[in-house]
C-alpha cells in the first residue's frame, strides 16, 4: 500500500512544485480538449501545429525586450499568433494561394525568425526553455494565466458552439441565415492561439499542441458524438497530465515530453482498441443486423 502511495501520491504531497505542475497541466488539458476536438472536426489538425510554431518569434521578441518575463512573452506570442492567422487567411482570400500553403509559408518564416532571435540574444538554456517549456517551474502568475485562459476558452467555446458546429457541417446554410460564420471562425482561431500560448509556458512551443490534439484524436476512436468526444478527450488529457508527471518524477526524465508521450500511448491504444472505428473493430466487425 505504501509503495503505491509513494509512487502515485507522495510526489504531490511532498513537493509544492509538483502540485503546481499538476494544476497547470490539468488546466491546459481541460481547455485543450474541446479546442482539439473542433480542430479535428474542422480538418484543421495541422493548423494547430503550424500556429504553435508561428507563436515563437513573438515570444522571442518579448524575451528580447524583457528577458524571461511572463507578460512580455505572452503578449508577444499572442500578437504573433494573431498576425499569422489573419495574414495567412487574408493572403488565401486575396491571392491564388490556398490557405494551407500560405499558412505554411507564414509559419516557416515565423519559426526561423523566432529561433534566430532567441539564439542571438540568449543562451542555449533559454532556447530550450522556450522550445520545451518548464512545467516544473510554474510561478503564481503563470498559474493564474493558465487558469484564466482555460476559463476564457471554455466560456468562449460555449458561446461559439452553435455557429462553429453549423459552420463546419453546413457553411452555406449558416451564411444564408446569419453573419455569425466569419467572426466565429476568427474567434475560434483566437482561442487556439490563446491555448497555444498557455501551453508554451508549461510545455514549450513544440509540445503545446500535443496536449490539444492527442487526447482529441484518441477520443475520436471511442465516440462519434461531439459532446461525448469532448468529455472523453478532457478525461484523456487529465490522465496524461497526471501520469506524465508521476513518470517524470520517478524516472527523472523531462516532464513536458513525458506528458505528451503518455497522451501518445493513450492515442495508440485507442487506435487499436477503440469501439468507434478502432483497428480491432475494423478487422473483426460485429455481425450485421436484421434491419
Amino acid at each position: 500500500m505504501s509503495a503505491l502511495y509513494d509512487l502515485f501520491f507522495a510526489p504531490f504531497a511532498e513537493f509544492e512544485f509538483m502540485r503546481r505542475a499538476l494544476v497547470g497541466a490539468m488546466a491546459l488539458a481541460l481547455a485543450g480538449a474541446p479546442v482539439g476536438v473542433f480542430l479535428i472536426l474542422r480538418r484543421m489538425s495541422l493548423t494547430g501545429d503550424a500556429m504553435a510554431h508561428a507563436i515563437l518569434p513573438g515570444a522571442a521578441i518579448g524575451y528580447l525586450v524583457a528577458g524571461l518575463s511572463l507578460g512580455a512573452m505572452t503578449a508577444g506570442g499572442m500578437i504573433a499568433g494573431f498576425v499569422v492567422a489573419i495574414a495567412s487567411g487574408a493572403v488565401a482570400r486575396a491571392t491564388a494561394l490556398r490557405e494551407d500553403a500560405s499558412l505554411a509559408a507564414f509559419y516557416l518564416i515565423s519559426l526561423a525568425l523566432g529561433v534566430t532571435i532567441v539564439s542571438l540574444k540568449g543562451s542555449n538554456i533559454d532556447l530550450l526553455h522556450v522550445l520545451f517549456g518548464n512545467v516544473l517551474a510554474l510561478d503564481d502568475a503563470t498559474l493564474l494565466l493558465l487558469a484564466a485562459i482555460a476559463s476564457l476558452t471554455l466560456l468562449g467555446l460555449a458561446a461559439l458552439y452553435r455557429p462553429l458546429v453549423m459552420e463546419t457541417v453546413d457553411p452555406f446554410f449558416l451564411a444564408s441565415v446569419s453573419r455569425a460564420g466569419a467572426p466565429a471562425q476568427l474567434l475560434f482561431l483566437g482561442i487556439v492561439v490563446m491555448n497555444l500560448v498557455a501551453g508554451f509556458h508549461a510545455l514549450g512551443t513544440l509540445m503545446a499542441v500535443g496536449i490539444m490534439m492527442l487526447p482529441a484524436a484518441a477520443a475520436r476512436f471511442w465516440s462519434a458524438d461531439i459532446s461525448r468526444m469532448v468529455v472523453i478527450a478532457a478525461g484523456f488529457g487529465l490522465a496524461s497530465s497526471y501520469l506524465g508527471l508521476v513518470l517524470s518524477y520517478q524516472s527523472g526524465a523531462p516532464s513536458g515530453p513525458l506528458v505528451i508521450l503518455v497522451a501518445g500511448v493513450i492515442y495508440l491504444v485507442s487506435m487499436v482498441l477503440g469501439q468507434a472505428g478502432g483497428l480491432i473493430r475494423l478487422l473483426r466487425p460485429r455481425h450485421h443486423l436484421e434491419a
Binding site: 472536426l41 457541417v169 453546413d170 457553411p171 465516440s223 458524438d225 461531439i226
Partner: peptide
Amino acid sequence: AAEIDRSFPINVFDLVAMGFWRSAGLF
C-alpha cells in the same frame, strides 16, 4: 448541392433543429 460535411458527428434531430437559428440564436 448542399455542401454538407456528412462525416460530421451530428444526428438528424440536431441538424433539423438548425432551422430554429433565427429564433433561437446563440443561446
